[in-house]
């Protein structure tokens, strides 16, 4: 376990956290990419998916998109975007790639969640005189909420992972700590960088699970089942 001890020493050395290539700055870049791209992806995917789910169309698109997303290597997309003219605009390739890979899980899960709402419940709501908008807000959305959150969680896992890979395509983020360690044959740095990335990924997952439970509109009813 000598390597873990060496990695710990590397992590607790203050100078490794300072400067442009220090862990502090890289962590900031990583959080910025992840946050901005997740927000952007939600803005694109969720209204579209919820609307398609509400009117009941575009199912094939929503499902195939996420299957296709799995077959496309993230690394290849990052590198391809970097060597297009887009690559001259700093972090733009990373941002585009992150959004591209976050949209499919968000879209598919939100859509499936909307379609899995019991039709009888929707009919009953309509029978009670609810308008389309009311059915959407008071019936469909609360019932689809767990699937929307599942989508958000897998999108977050995807975004944190892709933001790390951006380093292999010359982008910023915490992956740079790892690739820099590889370039200088500094195994403690590689392991230290990986530990920070792993901790961040698990923390993000944990925060989302907790937030998902706390914000659940049907918290009390669901627990009874």
């Amino acid at each position: 376990m000598g390597t873990v001890a060496d990695a710990w020493v590397w992590l607790t050395t203050g100078t490794n956290w300072q400067g442009e290539s220090g862990v502090g700055n890289r962590l900031g870049e990583h959080l910025w990419f992840t946050g901005v791209c997740l927000a952007l992806s939600c803005l694109i995917a969720l209204p579209l998916a919820l609307w398609l789910g509400h009117i009941g169309r575009g199912g094939a698109l929503a499902v195939n998109l996420s299957n296709a997303g799995r077959a496309v290597p993230t690394l290849a997309v990052l590198v391809l975007l970097t060597i297009t003219p887009l690559g001259r605009h700093g972090d733009l390739p990373t941002v585009i790639a992150l959004v591209l890979f976050a949209v499919p899980p968000l879209l598919t899960n939100a859509y499936v969640g909307m379609r899995e709402v019991d039709r009888a419940v929707v009919e009953a709501a309509r029978g009670m005189g609810m308008s389309g908008g009311q059915v959407f807000r008071k019936v469909e959305l609360p019932l689809a909420y767990p699937m929307v959150m599942t989508g958000l969680r897998s999108a977050t896992v995807q975004v944190v992972a892709t933001a790390t890979l951006a380093a292999m395509a010359g982008g910023g983020g915490l992956g740079r700590v790892i690739t820099a360690g590889f370039n200088t044959n500094n195994t403690p740095q590689v392991v230290a960088g990986a530990l920070v990335v792993g901790a961040l990924a698990l923390l993000a997952e944990g925060v989302l699970v907790a937030a998902g439970r706390a914000l659940d509109p049907m918290r009390s009813t669901r627990r009874a089942h």
């Binding site: 944190v160 790390t164 292999m168 590689v190 392991v191 792993g198 990924a201």
Partner: peptide, 10 residues
């Protein structure tokens, strides 16, 4: 949930 780059590095 662990990013691939981190997994390979670990």
């Amino acid at each position: 949930a662990i990013p691939s780059l981190a997994m390979f590095s670990l």
